[in-house]
Write a protein that binds this DNA or RNA. Structure first.
Lengths: 200, 200
DNA sequence: TTTATAAATGAATATTTATTCATTTAAGTT
DNA sequence: AACTTAAATGAATAAATATTCATTTATAAA
């Protein structure tokens, strides 16, 4: 017990699990009705909280959405290089990363939808956007390695990356909307198409 | 002059150009601030009309957005087979269609953004969605022809189409956001990647 | 030129939604 | 057990937005 204890003693603590609850509620609703269709009171209800409680954890709606966006971006970037072995041949490493991205997007489809909607919304500010662009840096390096080793076509790195993301992105979206789960063989043929398109 | 003329004589006519003005205003604003950020009064202002005038042309906001969506879908589907020569070799026809899609998306980027946002919004109803799916039928046929002639990989048509759209889609988006116009050579290398990925 | 009619207007109203706040509840300290 | 403090609540308020409507304007026919 220190001399300050009489001044600041937090007696009932904020529950950080609630932030997660709110995030999940928001994602569920955005997937259902889009960013244009969600309200603070609905988010609170879906999260099992009173409307006022939201404002203990988030300054306002804009901040809530920006924070959720940042969290999604973090989670997404985190997955890219899981199990990546820099010592292995390029194609193998590329495949690992490719599969990581695909799996993340299948598993976290709500996040993907949410982030997609955010890019053209009044909620996401410039600072948030800039940070987002920085996070694909490691992927840039990967593609560049592929070109140096003669494995990939001599095309602008940005174009190659775009191509790779485009394939994955659209496949995950279409699979979801047509309610067909991506089977092992679908994933394999998609990877084959993507690789054949990019390889030298 | 017929016997009814004393009953229904339209003396000041509705101006169909206004509908186009409103559509353009809405697209401009959606690109700027997203579907979540537009209001009826802003649309009216951007279109140079009074708020009330909007309600002469559209029942309400939902209808306005649905009609705009339908118009965009129409325009988009219209372009696919321009200059397509069914008698020409497959690759040539495929290339024509591919370029049509790419060009349309570059030129009508606002429409693309708008439609993208609509898919997850409270505005677009099921009926509208169903119609949209029907409109890619001719593309289905094209891909099937490619497989029959041995030009394309023996993969589900839907997967091949998805792949093709994914490449185009993402390339147009990224080009736009990074403010790099797609140059002739970028388009060519993108087409090459897409074709190499799909060809047998 | 007059008249009839529908379009156009934008301020007023209705509705929805964000945010606040007085009150209650819960938890740690004494 | 009493006390203190912050979290939690949800009804009340503020703010934003959709929609209406009484009035004005424009047009074509007579």
């Amino acid at each position: 017990m220190n001399i300050y204890s009489f001044k600041f003693v937090p007696l009932k603590l904020r529950d950080d699990k609630k932030i997660q609850q709110v995030f999940e509620a928001a994602l569920t609703l955005v997937k259902q009705k889009g960013l244009a269709g969600i309200t603070m009171s609905e988010i609170a209800k879906e999260a099992g909280l009173a409307t006022g409680t939201l404002y203990i954890y988030f300054d306002n709606k804009e901040k809530l959405i920006n924070q959720l966006f940042a969290a999604c971006r973090e989670a997404s970037a985190q997955c890219y290089f899981k199990n990546y072995d820099a010592a292995a041949p390029f194609k193998q490493g590329f495949r690992t990363v490719w599969m990581n991205i695909l799996r993340f997007r299948v598993k976290n489809f709500e996040e993907v939808v949410f982030m997609d909607q955010c890019y053209h919304s009044p909620f996401i500010n410039d600072c948030t956007m800039k940070l987002t662009k920085q996070m694909i840096q490691p992927l840039f390096k990967l593609i560049e390695r592929g070109k140096e080793e003669g494995a990939l076509k001599e095309i602008e790195t940005f174009s190659l990356l775009t191509f790779m993301f485009g394939c994955i992105h659209e496949a995950v979206k279409n699979a979801h909307y047509s309610r067909k789960n991506l089977k092992e063989k679908d994933v394999e043929s998609l990877f084959a198409m993507c690789w054949d398109g990019m390889k030298r």
